[in-house]
Design a protein around this nucleic acid. Structure first.
Length: 202
DNA sequence: GGCCGGATGCGCT
DNA sequence: GCGCATCCGGCCC
């Protein structure tokens, strides 16, 4: 099984975000393979998006990876947690925050890293902890080079667009429907409603 | 289930 | 100091 071609990250960030749902992401932190299927993402559209870290268009120490071309991995820390994004487009500081995955392989290791058996990967800080992704080891690396790898996975039956989570005081950007989830999959932030058959996959 | 407060690391002012 | 693209536990239904 070979890596997924990630050229779909080079064009439209919104479309790329939807296409990421269901893809399998794999890490090998400390030699242990862990993986999961993407269930929840958020798009951040750079200078067009007040909620983006790159809204000002100015590169700084924190956001510099976002100015790299598509396929780079942008990891930042927030309240002591790590959050992982995939950079999109050839030359714009846009990207996609990975907010939820459905655990697949290495679940025992995820439980060990998380220190609990429930809510392993249903949030951006939780899934990075479960996958062993940290800023000092992963920020600025590229996909499919052995740090975070992408493979084909599952196909969502239905995708739902919502407002992004944790975005307030960002004026017009609070209303953008830039969060995309697999409808009925329970491995998403603040899951409510009823779980879909086959967890929302085709 | 929901709401709220504290812990937490780090870059910017 | 302050402000976060967060998480968890405690409380109260």
């Amino acid at each position: 099984m070979s890596y997924l071609n990630i050229d779909f990250l080079s064009e439209n960030t919104i479309e790329a975000a939807k296409q990421l749902l269901g893809k399998k992401i794999v890490t090998y932190t400390n030699g242990v393979k862990t993986s999961g299927y993407i269930t929840e993402v958020e798009a951040y559209l750079g200078t067009k998006d007040r909620a983006a870290h790159t809204f000002s268009g100015v590169k700084n120490k924190k956001n510099s990876t976002m100015f790299q071309p598509y396929g780079h991995i942008y990891v930042y820390t927030m309240h002591g947690h790590h959050c992982m994004n995939f950079v999109t487009t050839k030359d714009l500081p846009e990207g996609i925050l990975i907010r939820g995955i459905e655990p697949a392989e290495g679940i025992d290791e995820m439980i060990s890293r998380r220190g609990r058996e429930v809510n392993l990967t249903d949030g951006p800080g939780k899934l990075t902890q479960a996958l062993g992704v940290k800023r000092d080891t992963h920020n600025g690396k590229r996909l499919n080079e052995g740090y975070v790898d992408i493979y084909e996975g599952k196909t969502p039956k239905e995708i739902v667009a919502t407002k992004r989570i944790g975005i307030d005081n960002k004026k017009e950007a609070v209303d953008y429907l830039y969060r995309f989830i697999v409808k009925g999959n329970k491995h998403v932030s603040r899951f409510k409603g009823k779980q879909a058959e086959n967890n929302g996959w085709q």
